[in-house]
Amino acid sequence: MIALFLWAVLQSGVPRVGTADVEFRGPCAGLRADLPGGASIGVGFDPPLSVGEERRLRVAVPWPAEALPQEVWKGELARSLAAAGPARLERVQPPTPVVGLDPTLIARPRPDLGRGGGGPGMSWSMLFVLGAVFAIQAGRRRRALLTTLVTLAACASLWLLVGLAPRETPRELVLYEARLDGETGEPWLEVSSARDRLLGVDPQRASIEVHPPGSALGCRTEFSSSSADGSVSLTAPAATLHQLRSFDSGGRALRREVNALGDFGAAWFRESGGSWRSLGPWAFGDPMPEGSPGDPPGRWVPDLPLAGSLFLGRLADPSALAARRDPAPQGPAEAWIRASGM
């Protein structure tokens, strides 16, 4: 009955991530604890804990979105961990909200990475190639050489169709939300978004959001000789994960007179109540280009306030502002800045 209740609670809202202090006893190479609602906790040790070795470590754990008595969730976590392996839960820490940021930054819509993570889907031309080849194969099945040649040609055509198809949406991006008319030195909001899997998570300082609500969230913490505090990754199949944390802009300035922030590969600007202008590339140290009328990619526009000016730019070097303590192996695919009040 309790499990059913917890399952319903986990399914009902946007799951979050907290931390738990757990005592592990060797031998242990890792464990996986399943929680109600498809959520899970994973822990890995490299090298494995030796026989009799005890370690008290902080791991990331899923946290229900609904207000739930902490003791209830703690009890469920303790039961699941004890059933999964030689682990004893000592203390839990609920998710901490991002502090010190202007509420309007947090209220902005999150980047939409779309379905399927941006890879090219099956197009009508691919289906046509498959259908035509199958029809030829079916009709000429007894002509081995002809069938082989047609099949190889079809494979080559499909390779060209998939290889030449554009990637419309990245699987991972970083968005910096800024208020340029705020107080000097006001922190920005850094939103790291990824489809299915988010690496380099900092559950103690960052806030996590998962869309759509009710997604099964898996938290995995890997301890190794190179990351003694643990490297946290989150998985949520067919969902988009966002990590929100405060970003110290370090006095970087972006004004119409001069770009003192970095090179932009592409940029757009909208005056208060006006329409969008495409600025094209904007190099570091240059004044803002005049540009020409043109809208930014559609996924950035919805739900933004019309009042006030708005700047949107894609950094030429995605890692130019990155301050990720535990970066993804390939780094963010794209980095964007969305700034109001310029």
């Binding site: 399927g116 993570g117 941006g118 890879g119 090219p120 889907g121 099956m122 691919m126 190639v129 498959l130 080849v133 199958f134 194969q137 079916a138 000429r140 099945r141 007894r142 002509r143 081995a144 069938t147 082989t148 099949t151 079809a154 494979c155 499909l158 390779w159 998939v162 290889g163 198809a165 990637r167 699987r171 991972e172 899997r197 390939q330």
Partner: peptide, 29 residues
């Protein structure tokens, strides 16, 4: 019949090839 078997087996190749390519395009790496 070898030709029947070979012709039937080859019918799988384009579908598997496309699935392979789409998996590659959809993977982070």
């Amino acid at each position: 019949e070898v030709r029947n078997w070979w012709g039937g087996a080859l019918a799988a190749l384009p579908v598997l090839c496309l699935a392979c390519l789409l998996d590659g395009a959809g993977s982070p790496a």
